[in-house]
Design a protein around this nucleic acid. Sequence first.
DNA 1: CGTGAAAGGGTTCACTC
DNA 2: GAGTGAACCCTTTCACG
Lengths: 153, 153
Amino acid sequence: MSEPDAIDLAILKTLQSDARITNADLAAKVGLSPSACSRRLDILEKRGVIRGYHAHVSHKALDYKMIAIVHISLSGQFAKTLSEFEAAVKRCPNVLVCYLMSGEYDYILRVAARDLEDYERIHRDWLSALPHVVKINSSFALREVIDRPNVGL
Amino acid sequence: MSEPDAIDLAILKTLQSDARITNADLAAKVGLSPSACSRRLDILEKRGVIRGYHAHVSHKALDYKMIAIVHISLSGQFAKTLSEFEAAVKRCPNVLVCYLMSGEYDYILRVAARDLEDYERIHRDWLSALPHVVKINSSFALREVIDRPNVGL
DNA sequence: CGTGAAAGGGTTCACTC
DNA sequence: GAGTGAACCCTTTCACG
């Protein structure tokens, strides 16, 4: 499993900033013929280097004006406890990110809500209702400073 | 500025899960002719509902195996303090997300690192060196449970 | 707002070096 | 691995319903 070379990195960087660029334009940008470029892209996709292509839909335009960061602790760290919690949290469409963590809390979540009233509903109907939860701590984003989809190459 | 209708939502949802779908396939999926679909997409982009299209490049495949969540507090909340901090944090390529927050800490960051050694370097050379920082608290992701680019529609 | 057709351009092969 | 050319398909635009 060889590492991506400089041309692969150029392809990845370009697709990170514009995933809908045509293969012909991408090829010109990285200095390849269209067919060579298409073949490399195929390999990058099949190796799982590229997980997918996503439209970044504005939360605000869709009326999601609020981002909450939620720390959660469970009653234990048994495998069954974790997997029941995770299965439930995946069903909440407002949860954008969820990590199992080291440290004081077991999980950290990034949650989108339309407004404070909507967040109260999500907190009551979804987050508080998650199995095995013993502690929840919400804080709110006042301003987005950085939101990059990927590591700067 | 009218709200997106059901077909617009179908377009957005489809592009969220596959931004490189051809306009012809997209049109078929939402039940439109290609030309009608293309026109709607144009409008959605120009209204800013779609902010951009991004390849989701695997951190792991690029050898970023570690995600840290970093809470940071500053010595004050003066506008100049905040803007100096933010200008500096934007220069660190490993910071994926940064929010100004309500609550105990001023900022929360999501940081990608290759491994623990790499994280120590980032912590020493970047995070600790950020201006006005008085408190830093790092914790680490043990497992990614959810990582959605957008709210489930 | 949706449809269909036409022109221009993109993608994807097999083939070659 | 990379480039070339040709067949096929897609995008874009326009007049029209």
